[in-house]
Design a protein around this nucleic acid. Structure first.
Lengths: 145, 145
DNA sequence: ATTGATATTGATAATCATTATCAAGTGAGG
DNA sequence: CCTCACTTGATAATGATTATCAATATCAAT
């Protein structure tokens, strides 16, 4: 457990958000100005291998990391990309349901909600003077994929 | 509707799999040897904008495209990355449940199962002489994220 | 404390998927 | 047949991540 690794872990556990490697790099650099981005990536990988943090393999281009390692679902803002926890009990039977209609061995599932975060809702209000666009103006397909 | 675009669409609709841009490129190139990878990317984008195909924004590094545009869930093989459809009715109430525990406006959800495909199961059988490893040997965390 | 075996670091190059750029080519409507 | 906006192919650029490697740090055993 090197100094760098310890500080990376500390900073991830400090925040409730689900920072990207780059965000973690920028935060850690305040305490260790000489740290390399590669060191951050390496230690994020190692820490998640050891189960001390969780690597979130969500949709989108950048991976995100979570200091909170319990099972939980997430919601992603379609406007700004922000990711938050959704405190729902993971569905215990849905994997069996899936097992019934596929020839895969089903091991787990990953559920991600898409929506608009509070921040971006406010932005929409400022622009259009209402809190929620009517259904027929929603831009996002309402389909899972 | 150019020749290239038409053929890309034809080839996507021809397969039941969920090919990546690169796989589509390699397939289409058999019929149009001079086509550029950029043309494939461009037309995949355009075709999905017009709703003629669906761009799947699943976990993992590469985007996948689906000629079948109805809502459905997917299962991904953790060994080889293959993606297949899961013919389950999308859960109509889970978004309301999520809406109850978040301050996001929940618009949709995306559910992805993880498992081992039939092919890779066979490979495991050949290696270990049994069809299914016991639970305590499963390598994948059984947690959604 | 010193040593030595091993792991880790910082800097940077390489990779991979995707997007952007741009000159040249194409095709639908007049 | 002309035109003009759209599209193509080739290639460069981008952005996130991973690999490489010499220099440095760690830690258990002296």
């Amino acid at each position: 457990m090197t100094n760098q690794r310890r500080i990376i872990l500390e900073e991830i556990r400090k925040v409730a958000s689900h920072p990207t490697a780059d965000e973690i790099f920028r935060t850690v650099r305040k305490r260790l100005p000489k740290i390399s981005l590669a060191t951050v990536y390496r230690n994020l990988e190692i820490l998640s291998e050891f189960g001390m943090i969780r690597k979130l393999d969500l949709a989108g281009t950048q991976k995100r990391f979570d200091g909170y390692t319990e099972n939980h679902y997430h919601v992603r803002c379609v406007e700004c990309g922000r990711v938050d926890d959704v405190c729902l009990e993971p569905d215990p039977v849905i994997e069996q349901a899936a097992q019934g209609v596929t020839d895969y061995d089903v091991l787990s599932h990953r559920l991600e909600f898409l929506g608009v975060c509070a921040e971006c809702k406010k932005k929409t209000e400022r622009e259009f003077g209402r809190s929620k666009p009517p259904k027929n103006e929603r831009t996002l397909s309402d389909a899972p994929n």
